[in-house]
Design a protein around this nucleic acid. Structure first.
Lengths: 114, 114
DNA sequence: CGCTAATATAATGATATCATTATATAAGTG
DNA sequence: CACTTATATAATGATATCATTATATTAGCG
């Protein structure tokens, strides 16, 4: 890849990572896999906005998805470019703010309840 | 600084760094201090556009300036956050494409010619 | 199979970003 | 001090980005 293309690809990835809400989502994923509905509960954004952010990050290779019935789980890609890993490292851990039992039960896959 | 503010400040910096032309400018600064006129010669951008990009990067603390007569020189700040250093490290070296003697003489401070 | 819940996509409007042209500032020079 | 050169700032238009509302899709369930 020539320099121009290389710089463009870095730029593209940094634009995906650089959005405030997406950074928060990445911070939220630091502790592990999360269900879409957890983002919807935690973030002050509409469900379509969440879905679109997740799609951008998935398309850019930042996160991976796993579908389980109606639910979709996302996790950090473990093969990220070093400079992206470094960014994620400096992000604070972001936890769910409130202990909303309904939310939690919704986010647990059926199997684990059996 | 709370998590929200911290994430916002990271986001802000990544947006400054994430622009394609600014990334190229940072790549161009990897080899050392450069005069504004060198950017104007090398980049396919108007002089005001260059000036505005440099200002954004200076305001964000990415680069430092040194004025010498009419000329203004910029260099990478040597105290960058780790994740920014990492980005700059992976940038390819960007050199002036053509050996334009007029350009070079313009960019050399008077003293060095005496 | 019809209903509900979870998620995705489409359409659209608001705002941010970037580039350009025009103009200002400030230093050097005859 | 008028003129030129280097750089910065202002004004403005084009495009990109982001959020919302509306709608589609898909899985599970009675």
């Amino acid at each position: 890849m020539n320099n121009e293309k290389r710089i463009e690809s870095i730029s593209h990835l940094l634009k995906i990572v650089g959005d405030k809400n997406r950074l928060k989502m990445l911070a939220f994923l630091k502790k592990g896999e999360r269900c879409v509905c957890e983002f919807v509960d935690l973030f002050d954004l509409s469900q379509p906005a969440i879905s679109q952010h997740l799609k951008k990050m998935r398309t850019a290779g930042l996160i991976n998805e796993r579908k389980q019935g109606t639910w979709v789980y996302y996790r950090l890609n473990d093969q990220l470019p070093s400079y992206v890993s470094e960014i994620i490292q400096v992000l604070p851990l972001l936890e769910a703010q409130t202990c909303d039992c309904q939310t939690i039960s919704k986010s647990i896959p059926l199997e684990t309840l059996k």
